[in-house]
């Protein structure tokens, strides 16, 4: 490469870098630079194409994990500050795409975060991951975990949430959504939510919960206490005939400790409220009598199993 090309390339890289900045405003200067030499436009195009290609490579690369296995020791220094910010570039197209400028926010187990968007407040529970759009605050995708949505209704711009294959549309709302290995759960505290407005269009009203389980082609509607919806934010988890598998998953998100229900107790129903504030070790020990199970700890995770002996009276 001769010197002239080399210089054009270096300058083009500089412009490509700056133009990617969301606040870039030197369009006139860029125009002048492009006009100055016919090599510039081609070099700029190359630099932009390199950026595009890099996006594909970066997306294909393993994500620098912000959701480490529970209680993993601190990682290397540089990545540390980054992960603490908990805003990670995981999924999503770049700001170069029209309109959509997605970014992902993720929490570690036990960590919660509140996101304030225009017209909506989203509380993200632990071990959860949501993708939002900088250019469209009325759109979100819950990738996994749980979030509580407080949405100001706007009939012209309904708030739309994508969860797996399902779409939810708010009808003026406070609602909680969980997406994990056991499927989708939508609990509504106020107002109503439309489930798949273009297909089934099931209306979930306050005090109702919709459940969609993987591999089942029907959804179930049930009753909940609307006051308990999003209770995890205040350190209260309310359950109404919830299987222990669900209780365990909810506790995992809130406590930052992996809790699993053994197969023999996973389907057992539990009704009650668990306070997750306070001493974690005590709380875990108390799960035994509370859930009528045996609590076994190994390698920092907790397994709930059936009690070995029948209690005598």
């Amino acid at each position: 490469m001769n010197q002239q090309h080399e210089q054009a390339r270096e300058e083009a890289i500089g412009w490509a870098m700056r133009v990617a900045d969301p606040d870039f405003g030197e369009w006139t200067a860029l125009t002048r630079w492009l006009e100055a030499d016919p090599l510039h436009a081609a070099a700029f195009e190359e630099a932009l194409a390199a950026g595009d290609a890099a996006d594909a490579a970066l997306k294909a690369a393993p994500v620098p994990s912000a959701l480490p296995v529970v209680s993993r020791p601190a990682r290397r220094r540089i990545a540390g500050g980054l992960l603490a910010a908990a805003i990670i570039g995981a999924i999503g197209w770049t700001a170069f795409e029209h309109q959509a400028a997605p970014y992902t926010v993720a929490t570690r187990p036990g960590e919660t975060r509140t996101l304030r968007l225009e017209g909506a407040t989203i509380a993200l529970n632990g071990n959860s991951r949501i993708t939002l759009d900088r250019h469209d605050p009325r759109r979100a995708t819950l990738e996994s975990g749980e979030a509580l949505f407080d949405v100001r209704h706007d009939p012209d711009h309904p708030f739309r949430l994508t969860v797996g294959d399902a779409k939810l549309e708010d009808v003026g709302t406070r609602f909680d959504v969980t997406q994990d290995g056991r499927g989708l759960r939508v609990a509504v505290a106020e107002g109503a939510v439309l489930y798949n407005p273009d297909r089934e269009a099931v209306r979930i009203t306050a005090g109702a919960v919709l459940r969609e389980r993987p591999g089942e082609n029907q959804v179930m509607l049930g009753q909940i206490d609307p006051a308990g919806v999003g209770g995890w934010r205040e350190g209260r988890l309310a359950f109404q005939s919830a299987p222990l598998a669900t209780v365990a998953a909810d506790l995992t998100r809130s406590l930052g400790v992996t809790i699993r229900a053994a197969p023999e107790v996973a389907a057992r129903p539990f009704t009650g409220v668990i306070a997750t504030h306070g001493d974690r070790v005590r709380l875990i020990a108390d799960l035994g009598p509370l859930l009528d199970v045996k609590v076994r700890e190994d390698h920092g995770s907790v397994l709930l199993t059936a009690k070995a002996m029948q209690p005598r009276s």
């Binding site: 870098m17 990617a20 900045d21 969301p22 606040d23 950026g51 890099a54 996006d55 490579a57 970066l58 997306k59 690369a61 620098p64 290397r76 540089i78 990545a79 980054l82 805003i87 990670i88 570039g89 995981a90 999503g92 770049t94 700001a95 400028a101 970014y103 900088r134």
Partner: peptide, 22 residues
């Protein structure tokens, strides 16, 4: 990209995929 050092890789990722300002 993999041959870059970790800091440069992290910066590049934030720049490209997050659209974060420098």
């Amino acid at each position: 990209i993999g041959a870059l050092d970790e800091r440069a890789r992290a910066a590049f990722r934030l720049h490209r995929l997050e659209g974060m300002a420098q």
